[in-house]
Nucleic acid binder design. Structure first.
Lengths: 175, 175
DNA sequence: CACACTTCTTAAGCTATCTTAATTTTTATC
DNA sequence: GATAAAAATTAAGATAGCTTAAGAAGTGTG
């Protein structure tokens, strides 16, 4: 999607909120530098991270943008970032798009779907420890860069329990 | 994808396996009648259901088909079914496809991605009880039709615990 | 460099969910 | 419609992962 219409580029600061629960998504975001996250907040007020978007990643709420419905997610900057805005009017009607662009979009959607399915497999069938190790293998650069509590949130456990797991893992490696 | 190339139609019996762990997926499947499921088997030998595919649904292993890699999933018939085979060569190179078909594929991929993301939100942020109630609301016809143990597997719990939950739910409704 | 703030760790007790195993109910088959 | 097979239930004991709380270790900022 290098050639998709991009309306503007903007600098955002760590902590800035680009999309809030209840908003109707008018834009998706392409991250030029820095890192964004998308997440939900559950009934108990706990945050659960859906996606990290470092350099060159896209992030947005496709459901809200496509169906013009209030978003259930938030998108924030977790580092100072530079972000370009992708108008979601492009998402609405695929039939009006160029063939070339459609093919690229299909590929991105397909790859995203494959990755998302892997995450479901992981959530259904792997233990917390296995999911953590899988995360470190899949996103080694993010592990360096992100606070552990965000990684815990992404893999579906508490930071305290992740801390336990890491201690157990490093203990078992020492021998 | 009504107009995608479909090589053949075939009747399959309950229990028949259409794709096995280790296979490279040569076909996706469109279900004409009956119902298929896709699932993984974890290290402990437990089955975890990724998808149900009743009438008019598509099911397959996109990762295996796209990347010509051995599948990590199985696809079986859970009822006697009639199924048409979709050649996965269509998946490989999007650029060679008709524009109209690409637009339809993009829409299907997008909708699938939206649904898949909802499932991740549910797995991360909802309790087992909430996930069960959500399932019954989202797929009321499947609830009638499928054994509870398959639903338990789909929402990520054991059949015994689902049984407990159902008892608690019906007890709390009686008052 | 000191203060505040965030992140990380540790530990004890707790709960949602699992395991095992036996029993009952439902469904399919000859 | 009897028998076998599959599905669902029940219950007791086990455990992975959570909660709470407090302290330690980083990190940024004036």
């Amino acid at each position: 999607m290098e050639n998709i219409k991009v309306s503007k580029t903007k600098k955002v600061l760590k902590g800035d909120i680009l999309l809030s629960h209840g908003d109707i998504a008018k834009y998706g975001f392409r991250v030029k530098s820095g890192c964004l996250k998308s997440y939900v907040i559950d009934n108990a007020g706990k945050e659960h991270i859906l996606q990290f978007a470092p350099e060159d990643w896209l992030i947005g709420d496709m459901d809200s943008a496509t169906n013009k419905k209030p978003s259930v997610i938030f998108i924030d900057a977790i580092e100072d970032s530079e972000v370009s805005f992708i108008s979601t009017s492009d998402f609405g009607d695929f039939h009006s798009l160029e063939k070339e662009l459609l093919a690229e979009m299909s590929i991105k959607l397909r790859n995203n779907l494959i990755a998302t399915n892997k995450r479901i497999i992981s959530l259904l069938s792997a233990t917390a420890k296995e999911r953590y190790i899988e995360f470190t293998n899949t996103y080694p650069t993010l592990v360096q860069r992100l606070p552990l509590k965000l990684i815990a949130s992404y893999i579906g456990i508490t930071p305290e329990y992740l801390s336990d797991l890491r201690r157990k893992i490093s203990k078992s490696q020492k021998k």
